[in-house]
Amino acid sequence: MTVRTGVASGVRGTARITARGDGRGGTVLPVLDGEGPIVPRRTRSAGAGARVTLVGAMSGPLGGDHLTVEAASREGARLQIGSAAATLALPGQSKEAARYDVRLTVGDASELHWLPEQLISVRDSDLRVTTRADLAASASLVLREEQVLGRTGEEAGRLTSRLTVRRAGRLLLDQELSCGPGAPGGWDGPAVLAGHRAIGQLVIVRPEFDQHRPGPALLGETASLTPLAGPAVLVTAVAPDALRVRRTLDEALRTLT
């Protein structure tokens, strides 16, 4: 399935992960399928849940590539997915944008933690990311996304990232960030990023937030926690570098879970 078929079309590849409860409080992984440059590996888990680490078999995505991760945490499962290293969006020979689509499904009484490392938008790259999470009414989700605009001292590539979270069929969060050369005007100005080079978001959906949602809070000068219009909160952080964004998100994650 991982075939570099030529300059124009790029690589197609899909990683599939399915977890389900084993009925005894544990989680099994009936599907762990890595056809493509992203390979999911089961790693040791601290608790009852399953842990999967995405390993990049090659550096990418390059221009023209289209990578997909499909992960499902079915009823009763507890699944945590991380990645072994940051993902680099790189320029390819193709003039086409690269695509990276993440599809997450979380069933009833199930929990998914999607905690990949940063996505780094390298100079002259062009990547469109879509992340969609579909949750059942009693599902829980912890989702982290971090974007870094350029490696140290480097100009950013072009990056568009849309994050959509749906719960019980209703839209809970829909946000798109577009930045880098050629992005709509003002992306680096005082309303949007103001020169910051790292952006992070942490979404936490928990059914018990229906009764007790944490209130809004500032987490430093350029980060905040806000309750969404449903049993969920969003932490948004921007900072000069990825380390500072991660610190803010980690701190928030500790206090919220």
């Binding site: 960030l177 990023l193 000068e221 980060a223 806000t226 948004t236 952080a237 921007v238």
Partner: peptide, 13 residues
């Protein structure tokens, strides 16, 4: 769904 992180954070501040 275009968003502006600093408008969001700034509004909470």
């Amino acid at each position: 769904a275009a968003s502006a992180p600093l408008l969001e954070v700034g509004a909470e501040a």
